[in-house]
Amino acid sequence: MIVVEGLGKRFGDVQVIDGIDAVFQKGRVNQIIGRSGSGKSVMAKCMVGLHRPEKGRVLYEGRSFHDMDAEEKRGIRQRIGMLFQGSALFDSLTVIENVMFPLRMFGLMAKSEMEDRAHTCLKRVSIIDKDQLFPAELSGGMQKRVGIARAIAMNPEYLFCDEPNSGLDPQTSIVIDDLIKEITEEFGTTTIVITHDMNSVMETGEHILFIHKGRKWWEGTREQLLRSDNKELNEFVFAGSLMREVKRSLTGEE
């Protein structure tokens, strides 16, 4: 479980996020949604320690991340898997080397074991016979899958996904969403997905946090989201005609 208490981050004169409180439960897909520039990625970066917040705390199993010493932080980070918007695979390494990278770096197992583990992760994301290719030789969807394989290589307890559907076609997006959901259930991870893709929210969102103007504007489940009367949330969620149609069919409202 991850608890966020009064989180605030400022860049120069701009207060990007302010006073955000949230609890992200284990074993379910938590989604942070909001418009571009609303502060959701900054919030996630504060949570994984890429930014240091000016205010508030991020608690991993009750311990404040930013108050930990370097060694403790490293220990927590080894329990975090992250899928980046652009996959962030290492260009000079092959697919298998990318997945094996965290295992090699921390010398947790013998080489044959590392290869077995990497193959298991690649098989889990349905990447077969591509392990000797370089990231540049893969499609965007495949790169995302390899990114997921690398993120789960260390058996993470916390999985962060930053815009996992960005740049993908609708079918591939569904494959990635399903994969994130399955992995969350299978490994019991605390999963946090940052997205503004409403299809993804409808597919996988179990606990949804809406960030607006750097503040937590709304929080609830997928079902509550469809019936919410929050003005800003509705403007964001039902901006597209497809979502408006969904709402109409559910509530009968025009």
Partner: peptide
Amino acid sequence: SMRVKEQIDALDIMGV
């Protein structure tokens, strides 16, 4: 290039 492609962030998050 590694910085703008978030590869350095990926290393940091791994605890490297």
